[in-house]
Design a protein around this nucleic acid. Structure first.
Lengths: 231, 231
DNA sequence: TTAATAGTGTCTCTCAGACATTATCAC
DNA sequence: GTGATAATGTCTGAGAGACACTATTAA
């Protein structure tokens, strides 16, 4: 059998990974955007991203983790591939493919990375995001659709919190991620029945804002868990 | 601002689109695989696929539709991107990215294309699929997970049928796609309440097998519709 | 004790599954 | 009519939402 001539290197599209990094602060969900260091669009606010590097990346997720490490000094985050976009006009450098990842980072971890010298991010309200370079707007839209829908049937929102959290905190994150209020007793009932949480032998401290201290929990599994029903 | 040196063409990964083409015949869901014409793995059964061609494709879905047209003489199918896989070892030609698409084709359309001279497909039971070249096994697994889960909350299974179908036929497709039996009256109730179907002024003909003829329906929208609940 | 949040118990209403019943065809 | 499939009607049980009620802390 003949080996057919195939697309040589000069005919290959550019391949990049772009990361929709999301955090949660007291105001709600926030996109983490950086000003671009280099052209095209140097100085403009955009997603962090970079080239897939065949010489060093073991797979696409490795590219994403390398980019998170180099541009945000973050590792071990929740990370999920969303989808890929391609076309001749989305990048002035030529026909390109962007593989989009959704990454979730607890507020404190992001602040700690910045305090330790990582490049700074601007936290942008996804509902009031200015126009972005390239087609980053639609990349973000795709990632947020994934976030919102998967929030309702998985432990995904918990990855916006630190390792320990209270039930009222967890409920608030679910509401923020899903964009809809939840019933309190039903939320407790379902999470307890699903045995997703482990009780920690400690309670959150009471403050002026927090009267009765709440029980602390952690995820029973450190990996994402999907439910057969909705929270 | 400087333009940073970027990954030149010689450092770009290979980019291909691979299509998990699924049909439904009297035996159930079937993968449509072809024997490869060229090396690597010439003569072996595999997914249809091809290179992303920057010089002619407007986006990645266009690559997928071009491949479906050229390798199966099929157009207008239900087509959905699943995800992308990448790595140094999945293709002997080098570090490559495969963008996986799920495509659904009604049995009669596929048979008609083959009768009209299109390359022939083998229909493979996904539950008894032999080992495949490259990493096509995991590409198929990812596509089938998508098919099975999306079946329960969308009109996706209907794209395995022709334009007109009866409710018992539709229920059977949902059961095949989801892999679980459904309650008959609940299925009718929900589909009717969701107003997804349009009644056609005709009934299926009765046969030795089909006693009372069933009402014919078509999808109210030719596009995929997602539900807020499960069928 | 009061105020504020955390957590529990219970009622009701909705909806899905089960299944009996009716309808419509070929023979 | 008989037999088979199509379609409808009704009962029941599980679970979600609503909300009243109890618990625990700071001040």
């Amino acid at each position: 059998m003949p080996v057919v001539s195939y697309a040589g290197p000069e005919q290959r599209p550019i391949a990049t990974v772009d990361i929709v990094l999301v955090t949660l602060n007291e105001d709600g969900l926030r996109l983490c955007l950086q000003r671009r260091e280099y052209d095209p669009h140097a100085g403009e606010l955009a997603l962090i991203g970079g080239y897939v590097r065949p010489e060093e990346d073991a797979d696409i997720e490795a590219s994403a983790r390398r980019i998170l490490a180099s541009k945000a000094r973050l590792d071990g985050l929740y990370l999920e591939q969303v989808r890929s976009f391609g076309g001749p006009d989305r990048d002035p450098r030529g026909w390109s493919i962007a593989i989009v990842y959704l990454a979730l980072v607890p507020d404190e971890r992001l602040a700690a990375a910045e305090a330790a010298g990582a490049p700074r991010f601007e936290r942008i309200d996804p509902d009031h995001c200015p126009p972005l370079p390239f087609d980053h707007g639609r990349l973000i839209a795709a990632a947020l659709v994934r976030l919102r829908s998967k929030a309702s049937y998985s432990t995904l929102p918990a990855f916006l919190l630190g390792e320990q959290f209270t039930l009222p905190e967890l409920k608030a994150v679910y509401e923020r991620a899903m964009g809809t209020p939840l019933n309190d007793s039903a939320f407790r009932r379902k999470l307890m029945e699903m045995q997703i949480l482990e009780e920690i032998d400690a309670k959150a401290s009471a403050t002026a804002e927090r009267k009765r201290p709440a029980q602390l929990y952690r995820l029973a599994s450190r990996a994402l868990t999907e439910f057969d029903r909705t929270v």
